[in-house]
Amino acid sequence: MTVSAGWYLTLSAVLFTIGAVGLLVRRNVLVMFMCVELMLNAANLAFVTFARQLDDIGGQSAVFFVLVVAAAEVVVGLGIIVAIFRRRAGATADDLNLLKG
């Protein structure tokens, strides 16, 4: 346990930021989805780190639930993407702007 929690948290923060920036700059919806997964993993890493730091298994339980939610989210999200691409092949996130004011 020589690597302190601070390093883990720092790594988590950097990973989260990379995911967030990726979400903002990428146009391919699938890649954006992957960036969301990056952010979720960053959060998971922070959870596990806190669980170790505080000696509390609750953090790991939270990660468990995050995994379940992520699985469900991916299922629905990819279903939506498939439905979209069935109508407009090759569409990027910027092409889907029908809801503009």
């Binding site: 903002l24 700059v25 954006m32 996130a93 029908l98 503009k100």
Partner: peptide, 14 residues
């Protein structure tokens, strides 16, 4: 204010 609603999901994410 309509212009805020660009329809670009990335803008909303921003």
């Amino acid at each position: 204010l309509r212009r805020v609603q660009t329809g670009y999901v990335r803008n909303y994410a921003l």
